[in-house]
Design a protein around this nucleic acid. Sequence first.
DNA 1: CCATAATAGATGAAGCGTCAAGTAATGTGC
DNA 2: GCACATTACTTGACGCTTCATCTATTATGG
Lengths: 155, 155
Amino acid sequence: MSEPRWLTENEQQAWRRLAAVVLKLPSELERQLQQDADISHYEYWVLALLSEAPDRTLQLKDLAAQSNATLSRLSHVVSRLEKRGWVTREPCPHDARANNAVLTEEGWKKVVATAPGHVECVRSLVFDGLDDADVDDLARVCDAILDRLDARPQG
Amino acid sequence: MSEPRWLTENEQQAWRRLAAVVLKLPSELERQLQQDADISHYEYWVLALLSEAPDRTLQLKDLAAQSNATLSRLSHVVSRLEKRGWVTREPCPHDARANNAVLTEEGWKKVVATAPGHVECVRSLVFDGLDDADVDDLARVCDAILDRLDARPQG
DNA sequence: CCATAATAGATGAAGCGTCAAGTAATGTGC
DNA sequence: GCACATTACTTGACGCTTCATCTATTATGG
């Protein structure tokens, strides 16, 4: 084991701030959605993805990938969303192992009702403090981090 | 309720990437620490903060603030760390309501043993993909977001 | 001083995510 | 075309965070 490559002063500062964002931003978004729509951030994300998908339908596997979650987590969440009447499960025609998640009309209404307040929250927390150049920088840096995250051996 | 201020195309892209980072980065750090040191990311933060504090001692209230957590969460975590022999609670001399958390010698050793691998993980996931200008951009953007997060009315 | 409020922390229940197993269907090698 | 591995998903248990509530101590107002 060689000498660890410690962080420079600049990197430490950036890291502390990124760590704080990564910790606080989700909990604030969670709070807003819970309070205003009685729904978790991840549940919202699932509904939003379905609302944009063709026929408002996605196979669970793909929905899991697009929402950055494990299939297990998604399965639990879809069960909850099903109980609330926002999503239904349907067998996938071409693969008897697979299931599709389909957004119901009620689910669509839920997304439509929830989206404006949530977008406003994201905007006020993130984008109102940034100019156009900052937004580009943010996207670029996040992309670089994601490249390395996705390149990891075993998730 | 006026027309919501939707996100521009650029903002949407940046947001999706930030959301992915905010979701994936913590779980990857969690995985590394759990695997290599049998400890959670937040537990590591607590130990690391204590290791840098004068006398390796901090009042629970201050430790909660510095680690971006509620007092309740910290209290539970300190209980676990106490059971593992890495931290002890001591009454605060000047305020009988308050408790100090103190890092034990065993706790110090744990930090020393864990830090290099964790820093390596942070470096490889975040900083190895960024140049100096990116690091500055990251710090600046995170700072702007934190300003708005911390300015929120009620947490 | 005394009542009230605020602060510091602890604790138990509830909900969600993760992990380990399990089932069922579908590829793949020989 | 039959074993074997892989894929797709479900389920139950466990651990951790949050929330509400509780105790104890310290400030504050009159």
